[in-house]
Computed example of a mutant assay.
Amino acid sequence: MNQWAMICAILLTSGPTAAETFEFTGTAESVDTQSQLYEERHQVTGICSDAGFQPLEHTVSYHKGPDDRRFAVKTLEYGKHPSRPSVVFRQPDFDESLEIRFTDSNQLTIDWQPPSENRKRFQVIYSNRLVIDAGFDQFVRANWQAVTAGESLPFRFLAPTSGDHYGFVLEPAPDAAIDADVVIQIRPTSVVLRFLVDPIILGYNQNGALTHYQGLTNIRANQETNHTALIRYRISQHPGCDLTS
């Protein structure tokens, strides 16, 4: 091999990893009435590594009604810590917006425009145990061996509209009425919060893909409350690597 061919070979093998796409759709139904509420369409771009699929950007569009109207959108950007993405969420029907941004290594800002209220802004100090929004999915996959072994994993979960984070635990939920290969729940560790916040139930298949979500959503039922829903997910495009390591 001549010198130019060797250089080309090195560039080809050491260049940027090709982007991979992971696409899935969730159908949300009311826990109370079992009627369909909306559909959420996810597109995640990322790269494949020894640790499995690593997300970089994630877009969710929310649709409902016979005209398939898009009524909300969310974008997430994952950095070095996929369980803590930055978030931009818009729900124009209620004039609501939410942005979560990182300002330095241990501080983030929350800019929330609630329906029919003044804008609220918070600055939050956090630790490496923090999980944000859909980052719970990455947290589960990053700890997949412990999750499937039935271990309990403590973490902090951001409550952006409160401007704070609280102690939660990820643990098995064998009694939950969800038909999935792996069924777990996220519940608060505080006794007081347990009376106020119901656990979130999650179902996964054996490959680490989310199949079910049951709990409070970020989609509003009205100006005062959000929907509590059971969301069933189906994959339309799988990345070219395993989701877990």
Rank of each mutant, 00 (worst) to 15 (best):
M1V: 12
M1Y: 14
W4G: 03
W4H: 07
A5H: 15
M6N: 13
A9V: 03
A9L: 07
S14P: 01
G15P: 00
G15L: 01
A18G: 06
F22P: 00
F24P: 00
T25A: 12
D32P: 00
T33D: 06
T33R: 01
T33I: 10
Q34H: 03
S35V: 05
L37A: 00
E39N: 05
E40Y: 00
R41I: 10
H42T: 08
Q43M: 06
Q43G: 01
T45R: 01
T45L: 03
D50E: 10
A51F: 12
F53R: 02
Q54T: 14
P55S: 13
P55W: 07
L56D: 13
E57S: 12
V60Y: 13
S61Q: 14
S61L: 07
Y62M: 03
K64E: 12
D67E: 09
L76N: 08
G79S: 09
H81F: 05
P82W: 04
P82E: 06
S83C: 10
S83Y: 03
P85R: 02
S86P: 02
V88A: 15
R90Q: 15
R90D: 15
Q91C: 06
Q91N: 15
P92Y: 11
P92K: 11
P92G: 14
D93R: 10
F94E: 12
R101L: 08
R101W: 05
R101D: 08
L108A: 05
T109A: 11
I110S: 00
D111C: 11
Q113H: 13
Q113R: 14
R121H: 14
Q123S: 12
V124E: 03
I125A: 14
S127D: 11
S127C: 09
R129W: 06
L130W: 00
L130Y: 00
D133I: 01
A134G: 09
Q138G: 06
N143M: 06
A146E: 05
A146N: 10
V147K: 02
G150R: 02
G150Y: 00
L153E: 00
P154W: 07
F155R: 06
F155L: 14
R156L: 07
F157S: 04
A159F: 11
A159T: 10
A159H: 08
P160A: 01
S162C: 09
S162Y: 09
Y166K: 12
V169L: 11
V169R: 10
V169G: 14
A173H: 01
A173G: 01
P174M: 10
A176W: 00
A176I: 01
D179P: 00
D179K: 05
A180L: 08
V183L: 04
Q185S: 05
P188V: 04
S190I: 05
V191M: 12
F195H: 11
F195E: 13
F195N: 15
L196K: 10
D198N: 12
P199S: 00
I200M: 07
I200G: 04
N205G: 08
A209F: 13
L210K: 03
Y213V: 03
Y213N: 06
Q214W: 00
L216C: 13
I219P: 08
R220L: 15
A221P: 05
N222W: 10
H227W: 15
H227N: 04
A229S: 02
A229F: 01
A229V: 03
L230G: 02
L230I: 06
I231A: 03
Y233G: 02
S236F: 08
P239F: 07
T244H: 04
